[in-house]
Amino acid sequence: MSRDTLGRDYKLLDLKEGATAQEVRRAYHRKKTLYSEGSLATYSLLTPEQREEMLDKIERAYMRISRDIQSRLPTPEAPVSPESAPAPAPLRPGESLGAYLKQRREELGLTLRDIANSTRIRTTYLEHIENERLVDLPAPVYLRGFVLEFARVLGLPDPESITAAYLEMAKEENS
């Protein structure tokens, strides 16, 4: 990721580089509220497409900044950022998808809480996804977003196909 992109991300959220995680979270929530559907200030200003685009930009900026902040943590047990970590092992045929996600997460030195913090997905759901506790998982429409986000922050190649495979597996198990 280039410094330019990151600079723009900070600017988008009206933050200075070096902002604390809390400041970043606050700025993110404020921006998101400003551009949410029911916002009086942007109601007449944007078309639905522009609104989507803006929300998407905010979301991606927040993700990148969060990762940037995480990578700057000085603690020795600082998690490895997906970019600098060794390339993930390819998924072996027949390997459990949940276990695959878990293995990659541990390889990066990330806890479920870390993932929850950057994805805003509850840790219980993340845990169920890893353990493939399908009965406790949310409806497919939510599950899709959860798995996709999970795979994405782990820096796995092709998160879409992993998600598709996971949903396929869940569908078969449930039927």
Binding site: D14, K31, L34, S39, L40, A41, T42, L45, L46, M54
Partner: peptide
């Protein structure tokens, strides 16, 4: 309370857009 924030929101939106 939201109405009180509206001014700041408009300032933000004018800046962004």
């Amino acid at each position: 309370r939201d109405d009180q924030e509206l001014g700041n929101d408009i300032v933000q939106a004018c800046h962004d857009y």
